[in-house]
Write a protein that binds this DNA or RNA. Structure first.
Lengths: 200, 200
DNA sequence: TTACTATTGTATACAATGTAAATATATGCT
DNA sequence: AGCATATATTTACATTGTATACAATAGTAA
């Protein structure tokens, strides 16, 4: 092995570490996750991870940042598909739900409240990218007169509904009718945001 | 001290322990909270708490159950105030928001995902009480023709919006316009749930 | 080649934590 | 008084994150 690791070698190891760590979060949960087991799964000693991350918390931040980026990318891809503005917005919403239901561990980690994004610039940037993605696709809807109001505000309204329904579901508060609640909420919101119904 | 503790003595100690523990959660956070510091603040030895709770997790469950009960009571009191059905529903919503903003630590703990309510009957019951309270005040609105649809479903829709907006705010995703997002969401929802706009 | 140095990885060590087990203390009953 | 038992504390231990000391390696300069 060379005397000094190249940037890509460092990044590769960080990637591999995050992949393994994400798997551990999945199987062991936030509390059961230990540095020693992570090291063992990576085939290195317990202290090796500390050459690549400041501490355990920094590893969590890196995993969360990666999740935010994958999430943003999934939404962006959904938005990029052919179709009119309404179809794209719909696709973005479906992609949001699919991401959260397919990978609930990542989704929960992303919105975990026990870590302050401000301490981790990479994480803050990834979260900001996701936030931007959440409001971006609303602008054409307003420009085309399909919805009325401030696009950023409306984007956050839809975000709040999706997030609220998902978090209640994860908390076991929406027994089996998660989809019914969400569909009714979206229908009512879209209706209430029609130009003829909006603004008082 | 008597040879055997009476039920009320046990309950009193549990209450005091939970109060102190809740304060510790507030100052130290979920991770910084330790059994030793809790014991010190209670003026007992480190192991005493284990005579009143199975383990640290059971203490967390008890705190969460108490928070759910205080929460449900706050909503119930708001609903019980004089006024028509719409005013009461409005008061319930405001009480919800006030509780969460006044005591964010309790609110976050209530909806923390790392503990399964099913393992703690007292907690499950308290959560169920809060859930029931969340949908109860919607029934008169539907009966009086102010909203159209399934009352339980609508109740959960409002719950999802409140919860989603609050959790996004706590996660730092709604900079300063939490109230604007929530107000617009509620306005649009109410509009979209009007009899003339509902049901397709 | 050989000695030196800087970088990476490991082994060891330690303090903090949850909690089990052993022990002490105190109280009601006979 | 003396015993049995419920309560509380003391001690002990395994597990954890991570600081520190050390080992191994490889590029550089002679």
């Amino acid at each position: 092995m060379p005397r000094t690791l190249t940037n890509t070698e460092v990044e590769d190891f960080r990637d591999r570490l995050c992949d393994v760590a994400a798997g551990l979060f999945e199987t062991r949960g936030r509390d059961g996750f230990t540095m020693r087991e992570l090291a063992a799964k990576l085939g290195v000693s317990a202290m090796t991870a500390y050459r690549y991350f400041r501490d355990k918390d920094a590893i969590l931040a890196a995993i969360r940042a990666r999740a935010f980026n994958r999430f943003a990318q999934a939404l962006e891809e959904a938005c990029a598909r052919p179709g009119d503005a309404a179809a794209r917005a719909n696709a973005a919403g479906e992609a949001y739900i699919r991401f959260a239901l397919d990978d609930p561990t990542s989704y929960k980690l992303m919105f975990d409240l026990s870590q302050d994004d401000a301490n981790y610039p990479e994480l803050a940037k990834a979260a900001e990218r996701a936030r931007h993605t959440m409001t971006r696709h609303v602008h054409p809807l307003v420009e085309q007169g399909l919805l009325a109001g401030d696009p950023d505000l409306i984007g956050h309204v839809f975000w709040a509904i999706l997030h609220g329904a998902l978090m209640l579901k994860f908390a076991g508060k929406l027994d089996s009718n998660f989809r019914a609640v969400l569909d009714e909420a979206l229908r009512a919101l879209v209706s209430g945001l029609q130009p003829r119904n909006a603004g008082r």
